[in-house]
Write a protein that binds this DNA or RNA. Structure first.
Lengths: 235, 235
DNA sequence: GCATAATTGATAACAAGTTTGCATTCTCGC
DNA sequence: GCGAGAATGCAAACTTGTTATCAATTATGC
C-alpha cells in the first residue's frame, strides 16, 4: 500500500520528464533506513531534497503532551524537504521510516544546480507545491466546517481512489488510532464516527481494516453533505 | 493596514529582482474594482496570475449554509491565482475587493513565457508556495491542537509582527465577526476567548479594535503554551 | 445633540468531542 | 487450541463551542 494519507497529491517522479528524472536520480545518494529510524527530525538544519525510492515514511510531529499528529504518509516517488530548500526553514517535521525504507537524498547545492539547468524541475516542484497547498486548504476548510463522520468518509474515499474498479468494494488496512492521529481527535470519536457510517452501511469495520462496500453510494452520500462545490483538476 | 491575516507569508513582488519584477508588471493589465466587486469566483476556469497593486482583497468561500470562511486577506504586492496555472485547477476561492482595488492581471500564456525566460520568477513562486504551505500546515496543526484563546493570541501577535518597535503596544482594526470567520468559529466563542485574554491583561478589547499592550509578555505567555517547538526562517 | 446602525456582552439549551477506565473481541505465534 | 497482546466497544463526567435571543455600549451622520 502506498499513499494512505497523501490527500490525493501526486508524487514528484511521475511529474518529471525522463531526462529530468534521470538527472535528479543520478545526483542522489540512496540511503537505507530500518523500521522506525528517524530520517529527519524537526529542527534539523541540513537542507536537501529527499525522494522515497522504496517503502513508506510517516511525516508528523510529537506534541508536548506526548500526542502525535500525522501530517502525511508518503510512498515511492514522493518527495519531501522542499521547505529546507525554498523557504529557508529547518525541517518542520519528523520523518520516520515505516518498515525498511530507501531514500534518495539530494543535497541542496545539487538541487540548485539542477534547478538552474532544467526548468522542468522547477515546474514539477511548483505543480506539486500548489497542489499540496490546494489540498491542504480544502482539508483545513473541511476541518472547520464538516462534522467528523463526513470528514472521515471523504478521506476514506480519497484513500481508495486508485483502487480499481471504482465501483468495486475497497478496503484499507488502518487502525482507528492512526485515523485519530490524522484527524487530531480521540480514538473514541473516531470509533463513534465510524459506527455511525457503519450503521448506514457505508463502511464495514474490521479488525485493523476498514472496507467501503459501495463507493459510488458513499460518493453520493458525501455530495449531499459537502459544504462547497467540488473543484477538481482538469477541464 | 495591509495583511490582516496573511499567516505572515511574504508578498511576491519583494521576492523578485528588479528586472523580473519590471518584466512581470509590464506584461500585466491593471484592472480597477469597486468595493465589494467579485474579482474571481470559485469555479471560474480562466487561468492567470493576479497581483494586488493597491487596496486589499478578501479570499474566502461561502458555505452552503450561508456562512462565510475567510482564508486570507491580501494587500499590495501579494499575488493569487497560482492554482489555475500550475495545478490545473479552476479558481478555488471567491476573491472580493475590500474598498477600491487595482489588480494587475497577467494572462496564463504571458506568465508561462516569463517563467521560461527568467528562472527567478519560478524561484520566487516556489519560495512563496513553500512558505504558504508551511504556514498553512502549522495553522492546521494549531487548529487541531490548541485551544481557541491560544490560537487567537498567536495570530494577533503574528498580525502585528511588523509594527515596530516590537516592545511597543500595537493595535489592529478588527471586528469580532471577522475573527470568527477566520477561525471558523462563532462570534460568541471569539468573544469568550478575547475576554479570557483580556482578563490576563494580554489584550484590550475596543470597539472594532484590539490592542496588545505588552507583546513581549504575550509572546512569553504563548511560548509556555505552544505544543511544538517554534521553527522560523533564517538562522 | 440625537437617532440609528454597528458592535459587543450575556444567557440558556444543546451538540460534539475529551478523558478515563474497563470490558470485549480479534489475531497471531506457539 | 490457547494465551498474550492488540484493537475495538462502551459509559460517565466534563469541557468547549453552537444557536438564538436580547440587552448594553459605541460611533457616525445629520
Amino acid at each position: 500500500m502506498t499513499d494512505i494519507f497523501d490527500l490525493d497529491t501526486p508524487a514528484l517522479l511521475p511529474l518529471l520528464p525522463p531526462a529530468t528524472k534521470a538527472a535528479l536520480l543520478s545526483a542522489a545518494v540512496p540511503v537505507h533506513y530500518p523500521d522506525g529510524a528517524l530520517v529527519h527530525a524537526r529542527g534539523d538544519r541540513k537542507p536537501g531534497l529527499s525522494v522515497v525510492r522504496s517503502g513508506t515514511v510517516r511525516i508528523g510531529n510529537p506534541g508536548a503532551d506526548g500526542s502525535y499528529t500525522t501530517t502525511s504518509i508518503l510512498g515511492p516517488g514522493h518527495c519531501f524537504g522542499e521547505f529546507t530548500l525554498f523557504a529557508d526553514l529547518p525541517r518542520t517535521h519528523d520523518v520516520v521510516a515505516i518498515g525498511e525504507v530507501v531514500i534518495d537524498q539530494i543535497s541542496a547545492p545539487r538541487v540548485m544546480a539542477l534547478y538552474d539547468a532544467d526548468p522542468k524541475l522547477g515546474w514539477a516542484l511548483l505543480c506539486l507545491a500548489t497542489r499540496r497547498l490546494h489540498a491542504l486548504i480544502e482539508f483545513a476548510e473541511d476541518l472547520r466546517r464538516l462534522p467528523l463522520p463526513v470528514q472521515l468518509a471523504k478521506h476514506l474515499l480519497a484513500m481508495t481512489r486508485q483502487h480499481a474498479p471504482a465501483s468495486a468494494p475497497a478496503s484499507v488496512a488502518l487502525v482507528q488510532d492512526d485515523l485519530a492521529s490524522m484527524f487530531g481527535v480521540s480514538r473514541v470519536s473516531i470509533g463513534k464516527a465510524l459506527r455511525r457510517l457503519a450503521a448506514e452501511g457505508l463502511v464495514e469495520i474490521g479488525y485493523g481494516r476498514l472496507t467501503l462496500p459501495d463507493r459510488p453510494r458513499l460518493a453520493d452520500w458525501l455530495a449531499e453533505r459537502a459544504v462547497l462545490m467540488p473543484v477538481t483538476a482538469g477541464g
